[in-house]
Nucleic acid binder design. Structure first.
Lengths: 349, 349
DNA sequence: TTGTACGCGTTATCAC
DNA sequence: GTGATAACGCGTACAA
């Protein structure tokens, strides 16, 4: 049953005033050698820890954090992020944490850069972004470093030396997880495809890592005979993305399984079947359309990247650092959640 | 850019003193009708929320919470719980939260009851337990209700009307998840066993729920021909548990897969193979021995019940209730995490 | 019915 | 070098 010793307790025990103890704690000098020693000894003895509550009350400063996100009407993958931001606002608003949202158009590279620069123009203490465009992200990160703004990133890799914090998944390993699922889903022989569907922007390294992990897994586990085909799919001129997909399926009807490395697995699950046996589908992300097909049995597994948790943890890491001096890890890798029709509901919202 | 309005701001705007505003907030009366109205209006307009920091500093009370857990040298499943307790202590210690640990011997029913009663004798504001013995747990819960102690439970069900809070998994659904994994692991025809291994105490309903979910899944998904055998296994007199298991395997060598409903799947994975084809194993919990067999390929999947998260969330729910009046849900069901050799590492510690 | 003053623990300023 | 004191926002006892 330990009491929390206060600065007052320490002062009383040593026989000095609070002011003196405070000067020792904050090393402001103007304290004699011997009293300083005595104060330090007593603090150590009673395990004095400054009360962060009182500290906060006294300081009473506002910490502005800017957040750069894709605008709401873009990919629904980002939707849960907004809830995380609101949650942090609720939990830490009274600690002086203010979150300022900035939105860019994920179809337009220039928008990312300009809105990003706008976001840091107000000199927040920290800046959180999803670095969809790594070149531009680095430019912004460098600007932040110049002006002493902590830079946090989530979901997409960017050169680690440029940023203070990254949270996301190990993409190589998530490719392996996908492969391990296919491994039990397929028969002794199978034709599998890795399908990179990318409607708008480039995210090459992202996909490459998943591809590498997927291939590696089957290099190591050779007891089934697997042929892996790699495809990049973009919306073809004059065709809708759905038509492009249908075209792909027609041309590749021999495939037993398709690993979709983006959140677009539902596009493959959609529409009329071309071959009599549907290919096995494994994809990413619990967006509404994917969930629907998961329930129907058209998609076997989804890998959950938990964007909400990514945002929540990046923000709370920063917040606790500013409020309570809690150091944060430079990098956090979230679990690679395996989702099927029986357990998906617990991961929503 | 909203400011956090304080009681002083409100008082100044309305043109009264802080005291008056405070009386309105806490409905202590002794305020004229019209000033009360005016104050309420202004509070609503500026979205006044009392500052929980200042509140806490002023109140300066200590909240004792007692926790009843199995002693450390029992099932390693409980180990992560201790880390969760320490984390809550670190995060909330300065908010006046004190956690008091009490340990019972899970082999001895009477120990659960006596230590449990001891834990609540000191009149904590809340009591958290893992109700391994539901009869005794109810007795303790009733005692708590009499003395106005909030009762929280985790991991094991107990009559919900007796307790204020439960966190755990939907066991029926976890049985279904296990079944859905077997469904893709097996061939067109299979003999499966549900194996309840229970070395010491009874936990009948716990296992029954998992069993029900497992069977239901195959009732619904009939496209594979599955025969399900149900076995209860206890240490036989004169034999070690390992010998009992070996004996079981010999007698049931025809099984294609075994669903172990406790954390003891490693016992089945251990030892010499009896039949030439090993049965597929799916079990529960990331205890060290299970993980080892998961890596080796002897266990296909484990379902993670996240005891650490269970304890962390039960405690923070209680804590936030006492500190900040945050209401808590009576029941929280955690995700049913699907773990295999490729993703287990992210769920440890 | 209303206003004032004090204290919670910390920090910072000011006077000795 | 050191101690006394004000202030952060809130709750409350007490004075008016």
């Amino acid at each position: 049953m330990k009491k929390n010793y206060t600065i007052k307790d320490i002062a009383r025990i040593v026989g000095v005033s609070k002011g003196t103890v405070d000067r020792v704690i904050h090393q402001r000098g103007r304290v004699s050698q011997e009293t300083a020693e005595k104060v330090k000894a007593v603090m150590a003895q009673f395990e004095y820890r400054p009360n962060p509550i009182a500290k906060r009350l006294k300081k009473n400063t506002i910490y502005n954090i800017s957040i750069l996100l894709p605008q709401k009407n873009s990919d629904p993958y980002w939707l849960p992020c907004f809830a995380a931001i609101e949650q942090v606002e609720r939990e830490y608003g009274h600690f002086g944490i203010k979150l300022n949202r900035y939105y860019f158009d994920p179809e337009v590279t220039a928008s990312f850069l300009s809105v990003g620069l706008e976001a840091i123009a107000s000199k927040p203490v920290a800046f959180l972004m999803v670095p969809l465009f790594f070149r531009e992200a680095e430019i912004i990160a460098e600007k932040c470093k110049e002006t002493n703004i902590k830079v946090a990133t989530f979901n997409n890799y960017v050169n680690q030396s440029k940023v203070d914090f990254f949270i996301g998944q190990d993409l190589y390993q998530s490719g392996r997880v996908a492969a391990s699922l296919f491994y039990i889903l397929i028969k002794e022989k199978a034709n599998l495809a890795i399908l990179h569907i990318d409607e708008s922007f480039q995210n090459a390294s992202h996909m490459q890592e998943k591809e590498r992990g997927f291939i590696d897994y089957f290099e190591i586990n050779k007891s089934k005979e697997v042929k892996i085909h790699i495809h990049h799919l973009k919306k073809e001129d004059g065709f809708s993305i759905e038509e492009t997909i249908t075209n792909f399926k027609r041309k590749n009807a021999y495939l037993d399984g398709i690993f979709v490395t983006t959140s677009k697995a539902y596009l493959l699950a959609n529409g009329g079947r071309v071959s009599s046996t549907k290919p096995i589908l494994v994809g990413y992300d619990l967006v509404e359309k994917n969930i629907a097909h998961l329930k129907e049995g058209n998609i076997s597994f989804l890998i959950h990247q938990d964007p909400k948790k990514q945002v929540y943890l990046s923000l709370t890491s920063l917040v606790e650092y500013f409020l309570f001096d809690n150091p944060f890890r430079k990098q956090l890798l979230l679990p690679i959640d395996i989702i099927n029709a029986e357990n998906y509901s617990y991961y929503l919202a």
